[in-house]
């Protein structure tokens, strides 16, 4: 009877350990697009790491200034303010962070006028028509240049010249 109990316990541990392994790696879309590779590619990271790095970015923006960032999240478009966000949830899905982005060719952002992002823009960016937006709530992968801007005395972070990577 005791042997049976040990076997049951060992099976339980084996199950627990098996569930810990096999990290679910998110497939990157970098290879199937014509977008150049990002300097910080978060599409290959685990959910916990992505959420933590976005938080780190917001508290230490100087480390990421001007770098190309690629991230996966949920599309959120506010038609009244004409602002787009990539919403990234944590592992429990109870907390989320919003990463704002401005599409390449879109110059309607209310707080970006003072931002000197000319050296960040790709050649001919001004003539480009912004890509059509996916539906709100759909999964997106975006890539853009990391910048900061002042919004009502508060520093916010944003991805400029962003592209949807399909």
């Amino acid at each position: 009877m005791k042997t049976l109990q040990y076997i049951l316990f060992l099976s339980l541990i084996a199950l627990l350990l098996a569930s810990c392994g096999g990290a679910p790696q998110k497939s990157t879309t970098a290879n199937d697009t014509n977008t150049p590779a990002a300097e910080v590619d978060m599409t290959t990271m685990s959910k916990t790491m992505v959420y933590s790095e976005i938080n780190f970015m917001r508290s230490n923006p100087e480390r990421y200034m001007g770098k190309t960032i690629r991230v996966e999240g949920i599309m959120e478009y506010n038609p009244l303010l004409h602002r787009r966000y990539c919403v990234i949830a944590d592992a429990t899905a109870c907390c989320s962070v919003q990463l704002e982005f401005v599409l390449k060719g879109d110059h309607s952002h209310p707080f970006l006028n003072a931002l000197d992002s000319q050296n960040m823009q790709l050649p001919g960016a001004n003539e480009i028509t912004p890509q059509p937006d996916p539906q709100n709530g759909s999964k997106i992968v975006i890539q853009g240049y990391f910048q900061t801007f002042q919004e009502r005395e508060k520093q916010s972070v944003i991805l400029t010249d962003a592209l949807y990577c399909h």
Partner: peptide, 14 residues
């Protein structure tokens, strides 16, 4: 937790 993307607290307890 950081490798598999599970919540940190519950993973430690597990």
């Amino acid at each position: 937790s950081i490798l598999s993307g599970t919540p940190v607290g519950v993973t430690i307890v597990a």
